[in-house]
């Protein structure tokens, strides 16, 4: 088919990026008090669980973590075929908390817009900060990430894929050329 795949980050590079992002989160927020982690399904929730684990190792504190599914908030409902609906699972209040929103890849910014609307419907957080493993550019909305694992310049027709193993631990980030 002529499509080419290139590995951008391997498992240990991802682990190091997550560790650095965790340190940045803790530095900016002066610890983990009042923090909550919300991962965007699917993939972001696995990374959020990993950051939660790192915070525990570094600070010894437990940070609540949940998952948000943005399908109900997408701006393209009614365009194309109907999408499967995942589950939002946030079993704690967001009011007056600092939310770290976690996603695998930031691209147009539309998913993040949908996720922020979803969070605002559920509560009133003090702040929302965004952590992503990969920033591939091509933003269509005025949104930027606060914590970035790796900036990867990409063409629009390329795809970026984050692979996880069965225990939801990240294995690899791949760039797929058409």
């Amino acid at each position: 088919m002529g499509s080419k795949e290139k590995s951008i980050l391997d498992g240990s590079s991802i682990e190091r990026a997550i560790t650095r992002i965790t340190h940045e989160i803790l530095e900016k927020n002066k610890g983990c008090d009042n923090l909550v982690l919300i991962g965007i399904r699917s993939g972001g929730d696995h990374l959020a669980a990993l950051i939660r684990q790192r915070i525990k190792e570094i600070e010894g504190g437990e940070v609540p973590h949940g998952a948000v599914d943005v399908t109900m908030y997408r701006d393209d409902v009614g365009h194309g075929s109907v999408r499967p609906m995942g589950k939002t699972d946030i079993p704690f209040a967001l009011d007056n908390r600092h939310v770290i929103l976690v996603d695998e890849v930031i691209y147009t910014g539309r998913t993040i817009r949908a996720a922020m609307d979803a969070l605002m419907d559920i509560g009133r957080p003090s702040s929302i900060q965004l952590a992503v493993l990969v920033d591939r550019g091509h933003r269509e909305l005025p949104i930027r990430a606060d914590y970035v694992g790796r900036n990867v310049p990409s063409a629009r027709d390329e795809k970026i894929q984050v692979l996880f193993d069965e225990a939801h631990l990240p294995l690899e980030v791949r760039l797929i050329k058409p």
């Binding site: 399908t71 109900m72 908030y73 409902v77 009614g78 589950k87 939002t88 699972d89 609307d117 979803a118 419907d121 559920i122």
Partner: peptide, 13 residues
């Protein structure tokens, strides 16, 4: 999950 929220409304449709 939406039906159990305080604000029981999503913009989907």
């Amino acid at each position: 999950e939406v039906n159990q929220r305080d604000i029981k409304k999503v913009p989907t449709l």
